[in-house]
């Protein structure tokens, strides 16, 4: 049984003139962090909303933990942080979590124990009595994350979870997510922050114009560029460049390093031998890999 499964899930508006999502197939194993990437309007949020029955599919099927998404029980073991959530400003954090916890079917006595733990986890325990209308965007986002975890879900859907959160807050959210992954939870993330996604995700899929254009392990997206950055001690650059010229290696000159096209490890070892033979001090050798951002921009353009 998959955590999430979709078969040709499709959502079209206005009689098919607007294709938000077309024939989306996905089989997601339990216990992994999966990220869905794509430009604005690609259909990322549409997919989450379809799974949670916030919008109705035009065609296709979806399953959460084997339950049909049309059945409300499919949402019993899910948590959700929406992109632009509107939390009731007249409640404080404790009341908000209690109210929505009860809606998720959590008994009151469990909530009384769980709410302080969650507020501590998202670093809002000192603000638990403050009305939500006085919360900053980052605080609301952290509370939204706590809300997504209130029913101890097996699958957590996070739509732009670090939106509006400062760098420290992002690190904290990331730590929470990794902790949840260690507990065997499945986490589904929609995000624009590619560096975050790269750090967190086990699998990634890229959507464009409502269609999936690539899906795979995160490592598949971070391929070697076949380039190495060779950094030598200051003043020895000329010697390094002459070695590279000697070996007919294409490279770009920088201050005290060169970014060289070295296609295989044998050639790399030869270059290192030559550098050492000339008593040049090597400060670093780094394989240059493409980032997710590089890949994303290339594939989207």
């Amino acid at each position: 049984m998959y955590a999430i499964e979709s078969r040709a899930l499709t959502k079209h508006y206005s009689g098919g003139s607007i294709k938000a999502l077309t024939g989306f197939d996905l089989e997601l194993e339990k216990g992994m962090i999966f990220s869905l990437l794509g430009p604005n309007g690609a259909g990322k949020t549409t997919f989450i909303k379809l799974l949670l029955s916030i919008i109705k599919p035009t065609s296709g099927q979806g399953y959460i933990l084997g339950n049909d998404i049309k059945d409300p029980s499919a949402r019993e073991r899910t948590g959700y942080l929406s992109e632009n959530h509107r939390l009731p400003g007249y409640l404080n954090a404790e009341q908000f979590l209690y109210y929505y916890g009860r809606m998720s079917g959590v008994p009151g006595y469990d909530l009384r124990k769980k709410i302080p733990e969650l507020l501590k986890k998202v670093k809002l325990d000192d603000k638990k009595k403050l009305k939500l209308k006085k919360y900053s965007k980052g605080m609301l986002q952290r509370l939204g994350t706590a809300h997504a975890l209130i029913n101890d879900p097996e699958i957590i859907f996070l739509d732009e979870p670090t939106d509006g959160i400062d760098p420290i807050g992002r690190i904290e959210i990331r730590e929470v997510l990794l902790e949840l992954k260690d507990q065997g939870k499945t986490i589904f993330i929609n995000s624009h922050l590619l560096s975050e996604v790269e750090r967190l995700s086990d699998q990634i899929a890229i959507l464009k114009d409502g269609k999936m254009i690539k899906k795979g392990k995160t490592s598949d997206f971070l391929q070697s560029t076949g380039k190495y950055r060779l950094t030598v001690a200051s003043g020895a650059e000329r010697k390094l460049f002459s070695i590279l010229n000697e070996k007919k290696i294409v490279f770009s000159e920088k201050n005290n390093f060169a970014e060289a096209d070295i296609s295989n490890s044998m050639l790399l070892n030869e270059v290192i031998d030559l550098i050492r033979h000339k008593n040049i001090e090597i400060l670093g050798i780094e394989e240059l890999r493409s980032t997710l951002e590089d890949f994303f921009i290339k594939i989207i353009r």
Binding site: P72, R75, S82, R86, L87, P88, M103, F157
Partner: peptide, 12 residues
């Protein structure tokens, strides 16, 4: 928007 999502995503 933003309020309805939270409620409809619950198992009801």
């Amino acid at each position: 928007k933003g309020s309805i999502d939270l409620i409809i995503s619950k198992p009801h």
